[in-house]
Nucleic acid binder design. Structure first.
Length: 426
RNA sequence: GGGGAGAUACUCAAGCGGCCAACGAGGGCAGACUGUAAAUCUGCUGGUUACACCUUCGCAGGUUCGAAUCCUGCUCUCCCCA
């Protein structure tokens, strides 16, 4: 007997829109449900984490989750939320992306047991479907008028969209139909921008076979300060450790504002209502300890990466933001040093170039490009923002061999949050 | 087709012959405070071999001792009338 999936999402604030009858249908018996992931890059980013969590909850409620990687839909391009026609990815890149995304998704779901998760790729049912078959069997059931009424299409009529993007909703709709017919998939989940596409699917299922089909969408995640969720100056926050190091990943969550932390912990962790309320109380009593942010960051980092990565991220954070000194830095073994500072920008300079020493300005800008120009380095030095091995320095400072840790590397810093490692190669 | 307005640094927006590397606001960065927060206060926000020099105010020329500011042409944008 399944538990109440919809109520679970509701108290977590994860429901934007829901089709009438969905809750009842999901309570009757264990069924299948799916979410599609776009292979637009070779890694998912934390925006997709909402969708992943929805699938996780779906499975926990006793249903069978299907994670669909859009090998076929990726070839078409979803116009939803896009103001311009997209460029198509070539097939090789697409294949590569599909494989990468698949591997990432596999981490989160349980592929064993009665309601084991399943990975599907829509290229498998599209590759043998001919164009004529498609427009006869699928296109015949959905009117152009209906398709044009969708926001994703309507908002593009002024600027234009290709037939390819226009057809997208039919392609995605067919996915739903296919999974509904072959895998007993009765609900499609997704972000709120997917509502239109999902509904085309339920419509197709009803018209083509009279089957039952439902839809649930999650809200777009917003931050209280109005900036985009999941973005930093450096770009997206990725799930791939090669693109966003576990340290940066951990830091992103740790820096969640008080206003957002309570929402995020509901959405991105599996903590129960009781646990979360207790944490909120604790946080309210001692806000400076930032219990919510810490639990949030730890929980997600462990699930996306692993325990080991979390440990390193925490120790890196303690060293960079805690009370540690130059001596603590020097006490780290070389291996620890580099694993702690993985993901921190690095530059290498030859022994010859370093010579007996190097001015701090050259080390920050001229020779390394950590900062855009020597002028900027000077400005920051005057503002007392630059540190060498955690100690503030002034413009006169010259880095000498004595400052090098283990004789070969050194930690430079600008302000509280920017660190750079300079390595002298022998 | 006719008439008018405009194009200034990341964005908005002053300046209309020398005092302009260019007011101000936003954004960004940093300092203080703090909780690696918010709010607040302060400084910075073209480059360099730095009390000077160099490159910048749509593009290309010109006038002048000297122009972002004046003239000519070009490109683009907006508005009004038909």
């Amino acid at each position: 007997m399944p538990t109440n999936f919809i109520q679970e999402l509701k108290w977590r604030g994860m429901i934007h829109d829901i089709m009438p009858g969905t809750e009842e249908a999901l309570l009757k018996e264990s069924v299948g449900g799916y979410i599609g992931f776009d292979p637009t890059a070779d890694s998912l980013h934390i925006g997709s984490l909402v969708q992943i969590m929805t699938l996780v909850h779906f499975q926990k409620a006793g249903h069978k989750p299907y994670a669909l990687v859009g090998g076929a839909t990726g070839m078409v391009g979803d116009p939803s939320g896009k103001s311009q026609e997209r460029n198509l990815l070539d097939e090789t890149t697409l294949k590569h992306n599909v494989e990468c995304v698949k591997l990432q998704l596999e981490k989160f779901l349980d592929f064993k047991g009665e309601n084991a998760a399943e990975m599907v790729n829509n290229i498998d049912w599209f590759c043998n479907l001919s164009f004529l078959e498609f427009i006869r069997d699928v296109g015949k059931h959905i009117s152009v008028n209906y398709m044009m009424a969708k926001d994703s299409v309507k908002s593009r009529l002024e600027t234009g969209l290709s037939f390819t993007e226009f057809s997208y909703q039919l392609v995605q709709g067919y996915d739903f139909y296919y999974l509904n017919k072959h895998k007993r998939c009765i609900v499609q989940l997704g972000g709120s921008d997917q509502w239109g596409n999902i509904v085309t699917g339920t419509e197709l299922i009803r018209r083509k076979g009279g089957g039952e089909a439902y839809a649930v969408t999650t809200p777009l995640i917003k931050k209280a300060d109005g900036t985009k969720f999941g973005k930093t100056e450096g770009g997206n926050v990725w799930l791939d450790a090669k693109k966003t190091s576990p340290y940066q990943f951990y830091q992103y969550w740790l820096n969640t504002s008080d206003d957002d932390a309570a929402n995020f912990i509901r959405i991105f962790t599996l903590k129960t209502k009781k646990e979360i309320e207790a944490l909120e109380k604790e946080h309210a009593e001692a806000p400076h300890l930032r219990v919510l942010q810490k639990v949030l960051a730890e929980d997600i980092t462990v699930r996306v990466h692993n325990n080991e990565a979390l440990k390193t991220a925490i120790s890196a954070s303690n060293i960079l933001f805690g009370k540690s000194t130059a001596d603590d830095l020097k006490a780290l073994s070389e291996e620890d040093f580099f694993s702690v500072f993985e993901g921190v920008p690095q530059a290498r300079i030859s022994q010859a170039e370093f010579g007996k020493g190097m001015s701090i300005v050259e080390a920050m800008a001229g020779k390394t490009n950590f900062l855009a120009s020597n002028s900027e380095a000077r400005r920051e030095l005057i503002a007392n923002a630059i540190s060498v091995n955690k100690e503030k320095v002034d413009e006169q400072f010259v880095i000498s061999t004595e400052n090098l840790i283990n004789g070969k590397y050194i930690l430079l810093g600008k302000g509280k949050k920017n660190n750079y490692i300079l390595i002298i190669e022998g």
